[in-house]
């Protein structure tokens, strides 16, 4: 009797252990699949030619599979989105965490979580109908679907991550620091920027890195506004990101072309893993404080 009960307990424990290990299994699954399916094309094309080739012509008679344009576009696009999005997000976060009256803060928090919830295709659609024609008219270029449009859409899309994570970090700053600063005759605003922000810098760095991850990984919204030509990046040119390179050709690809798309996904995955590692570093540091 006792043994049977014990057995049942052990079985339940085993089931929960399996459930607990699912996430680990999924990460392994994704990693293994990406590596296995990503390696062959790189082997065939050559690592150097693949990563640093400046031309992508997957369906040409003599196909070329260089993804440097995509890598650079992803980097430029992300950097651009960070340059536009971080100052706005950061300033908003300081305002909401420290200055805003409770009601304003609650209302703005709703707005930010709404922004986080807007599907990326909706962001892309608005970008298509507002930004793209706007850029064409404003800068007098033949087509507004460009790196600039993608940067602006990405900047908007990473705002919620930056704002929310920064607010959490700023709110965790001990009140004593701020009191000490005020007691020295610093005004509240001076205190927020010279004491609270430096004290929260690891958390704010994590917010920025999280934004980088979101921008690097976004596919659909970018696909709708960036034009998707495999050009080397330039602000007013049609460009293709790592994500959109995978998404735009997958449905009709075959053979080496299809395998090369998996290799692009592998490169993207490695970027993301690197970003995650950096993110974890900052999150850990901000928790230690």
């Amino acid at each position: 009797m006792k043994n049977r009960k014990q057995l049942a307990e052990n079985a339940v424990h085993g089931v929960f252990l399996l459930l607990g290990l699912i996430t680990v299994g999924c990460v392994l699954l994704i990693t293994v699949y990406l590596i296995i399916s990503g390696i062959p094309a790189i082997r065939q094309i050559g690592l150097f030619n693949f990563l640093f080739g400046r031309e992508w012509a997957s369906t040409a008679a003599e196909p070329a599979f260089g993804i440097l344009p995509f890598i650079l576009t992803s980097i430029y696009g992300t950097v651009g989105a960070i340059i536009l999005g971080v100052p706005v997000g950061f300033m908003t976060a300081v305002y909401l965490a420290k200055v805003a009256p409770p009601r304003v803060k609650a209302a703005a928090a709703h707005a930010v979580s709404l922004l986080a919830g807007i599907p990326s295709v909706v962001c892309g659609l608005i970008g298509m109908r507002v930004l793209v024609p706007g850029i064409r008219a404003l800068f007098n270029v033949p087509d507004g679907a460009s790196l600039l449009a993608a940067i602006i859409v990405l900047a908007v899309m990473i705002l919620p991550s930056i704002i929310n994570v920064s607010i959490t970090a700023l709110e965790a700053v001990p009140k004593e620091y701020e009191e000490a600063s005020l007691a020295l005759g610093a005004t509240p605003v001076e205190t927020y920027f010279r004491v609270s922000v430096p004290a929260a810098k690891s958390g704010i760095a994590a917010a920025v890195v999280l934004g980088v991850g979101r921008a690097v990984g976004e596919a659909m919204a970018v696909m709708m506004v960036a034009g998707n030509a495999a050009n080397m990046p330039s602000l007013f040119e049609s460009v293709r990101f790592l994500t959109t390179a995978v998404a735009s050709e997958m449905s009709y690809s075959g053979g080496l072309q299809r395998q090369a798309l998996f290799s692009i996904a592998l490169v993207l995955f490695l970027f993301i893993m690197l970003i995650n590692a950096v993110l974890n570093f900052f999150l850990k540091r901000s928790k230690e404080k």
Partner: peptide, 19 residues
């Protein structure tokens, strides 16, 4: 702010900035 410059303060719990 000028008042607090002239009347300084030390707190119950030491609170140096994390700098």
């Amino acid at each position: 702010n000028m008042l607090r410059k002239e009347i300084g303060m030390a707190f119950q719990k030491p609170n140096p900035f994390p700098m």
